[in-house]
Every structure is written in structure tokens, then in C-alpha cells.
């Protein structure tokens, strides 16, 4: 009650020291300019460019079949062809158009749903909180992919239902993160002060609670983008995602997995998934360090 030091500031300092150690002391570069982040940004930029310019860059129609099946990588087919003689490079490039926007859609929808529910749970508390949290437990109790499979199977396997299924399995984590952020600040005096001035609860939620709790969820969303690409690929691999012959990375990997002696059929789309997932993860890490107000907003 009579301490002079501000405990929040102390904690922030502690955290800063911790981060400093993580990055090899105070002399290292800011996260944003670290080589690994630059590489990740370049990779994502490259994929974005490929997706945008797919029609120009892809030498073949991604759906066009040809008698030249299982051609190994060559000058004519850089990544070879698959069982139906389709050019794998063209399919991978076109696949970016499908996988990346779908992943973005899944994550934004999950963030929206989970964020709102988490906000309400944390702020209202009591039985609303209890009910919502048990619901998240229910979702958490199943492996994501199993639950997603069940949902898609029930609604019918197509792209829209795959996206919906993945939103259903991934919103709870945002709800949890936002809820705990809200809980940790619910007792903060600026919120009390605003309420005492006559600010209603909804407005307080929007202006005082949300901006201070959304940061961690945004970071999480970036990390989850990679996961969404993977899950979508997995659903497609199992035949529950975008219907064939759509050029989707997961279904392409599935196709190649039937016979691994034709390694190029699954390795190249696999590499595409790998690079995108890793790039999103690195970016998420960087964003976490960057967005954390305790880290960036020095006194």
C-alpha cells in the first residue's frame, strides 16, 4: 500500500530484461530488422506475388491434363507432373491463391468470433464466463483435426464447410486469450475511472478494454495462420476440403503420397506449405515482441 515503485513498471522492466536476454543482450537489433524476420517477410511477399501473378507466371493451366504423366522435374515441367499429367509448378502457384486467402479467412473469422465471446466472458464474468469457458473446454477436448473432420463430414465436404469447420475448432483459443487479457485488466483503475464518469459498459468495452486486450490475440492469429494452412491441407488431404480437381496444396500432397517413388508430386506442394507456415510463425513471433506495449512503450 505504501510502496513507491510501480509494480506494473517493475514487471515490464523484468520482461524487458528477459527479452533482452532472449535476443542476446541490448546490443542486438530490433526484432523487426532481424534477418530471420526479413527472410520471412520476403517469403510471404514472394508467395503473395506468385498468387497475384499466377496466370502470368504459371506456364500451364493448373487443371489441364496431359498424356505426359509422372514426368520428373525438367526444363519443360520445373516441378514435374502428376498422375494426370498436370504441371505441378502451375498447380503450386495457383494453390497459393486458394490456400493463403482461405487461411486468412479462417483465422479472421475465428478471431472475430473468439474475440467477441472472450470479451463478453471476461467482462461479464460469472455464469456467462463459466458457460463459455466450458464450451471452449468441449472444443479443446477433441483433437482439432478430428473435430474438423466430423463437422465437415456432417455438413458435406466442400470449401465453405471446411472453412466453417476450421473456424469452429479454432475460435476457443482466441476466446481464452482475450478473456484472460480482459480479466487481468478488469480491475485496472482506468476502467473504473471511466465507469465512474458515466461511460456505459459497452462503450468501456470498446474503448478501454478491447484496445488493451487485442494485441496478444492478433499475435496469436498470425501464429495460427500457419496452423490454418496445415489444417486446411490436412482436410483436403483427407478429401474433405476443396473438391478435386481444385489446385489445393493439401490434396496435392495427398495425391503424391500414394506412390512416394514419384517424390516430386508431394514434395513441392509440401515445401510450399512448409515455407508459408514457417514464415507466418516467424512473423507471429516478431509481431508479439513488437506489439507488446510493455516492450515497445518505454517510459
Amino acid at each position: 500500500m505504501t510502496t513507491l515503485a510501480d509494480p506494473k513498471a517493475e514487471r515490464a522492466l523484468g520482461r524487458r530484461r528477459w527479452l533482452g536476454r532472449l535476443r542476446g543482450g541490448s546490443t542486438s537489433r530490433p526484432v523487426w530488422r532481424q534477418p530471420i524476420t526479413v527472410v520471412a517477410l520476403t517469403i510471404l511477399g514472394g508467395w503473395l506475388l506468385l498468387a497475384l501473378l499466377a496466370d502470368v507466371l504459371a506456364p500451364y493451366d493448373p487443371l489441364a491434363q496431359s498424356p505426359d504423366t509422372y514426368a520428373s522435374p525438367s526444363g519443360a515441367h520445373w516441378f514435374g507432373t502428376d498422375s494426370l499429367g498436370r504441371d505441378i509448378f502451375s498447380r503450386v502457384v495457383h494453390g497459393a491463391r486458394l490456400s493463403i486467402p482461405l487461411a486468412l479467412a479462417i483465422v479472421s473469422l475465428a478471431l472475430l468470433v473468439g474475440g467477441l465471446l472472450g470479451l463478453v466472458a471476461g467482462y461479464v464474468g460469472r455464469f456467462v464466463d463459466e458457460a463459455l469457458m466450458r464450451l471452449t473446454d468441449l472444443v479443446f477436448a477433441f483433437p482439432q483435426i478430428i473435430l474438423a473432420m466430423a463437422v465437415t463430414a456432417a455438413f458435406g465436404p466442400n470449401t465453405r464447410n471446411a472453412v466453417l469447420a476450421l473456424v469452429i475448432v479454432s475460435w476457443p483459443v482466441y476466446a481464452r486469450v482475450i478473456r484472460s487479457a480482459v480479466l487481468s485488466m478488469r480491475g485496472d483503475d482506468y476502467l473504473n475511472a471511466a465507469r465512474l464518469l458515466g461511460v456505459g459498459p459497452i462503450r468501456a468495452l470498446r474503448r478501454d478494454v478491447l484496445p488493451n486486450s487485442i494485441g496478444p490475440a492478433i499475435v496469436l492469429a498470425t501464429l495460427e495462420l500457419g496452423n490454418a494452412v496445415l489444417l486446411l491441407a490436412a482436410l483436403s488431404f483427407l478429401g474433405l476440403g476443396p473438391r478435386p480437381p481444385a489446385a489445393e496444396w493439401g490434396s496435392m500432397v495427398a495425391l503424391g503420397a500414394q506412390d512416394l517413388s514419384m517424390w516430386w508430386v508431394s514434395v513441392f506442394p509440401g515445401l510450399a506449405i512448409l515455407t508459408v507456415v514457417m514464415a507466418f510463425n516467424v512473423l507471429g513471433d516478431a509481431l508479439r515482441d513488437r506489439l507488446d506495449p510493455r516492450y515497445t512503450k518505454g517510459r
Binding site: D6, K8, A9, D188, D189, Y190, L191, N192, A193, A194, R195, L196, L197, G198, V199, G200, P201, R207, D208, P211, N212, P293, K297
Partner: peptide, 28 residues
């Protein structure tokens, strides 16, 4: 304090908190 905004009459009752680092919203 509950689900309703504070009534006009009660807004005349105000509080100054102990820790000025926690009583102002850092983002506004």
C-alpha cells in the same frame, strides 16, 4: 456499478486513485 451507465446525479461523486500509472488508459 453494474450494467447501466452511471446516472447523471451520481457522476458528481468521483474518485482519484492511488497509482497514476494504472488509472489512465495507456492507449488513449
Amino acid at each position: 456499478l453494474g450494467w447501466r451507465p452511471r446516472s447523471g446525479a451520481e457522476v458528481g461523486l468521483q474518485m482519484v486513485f492511488q497509482n497514476p500509472y494504472a488509472s489512465l488508459n495507456p492507449r488513449r
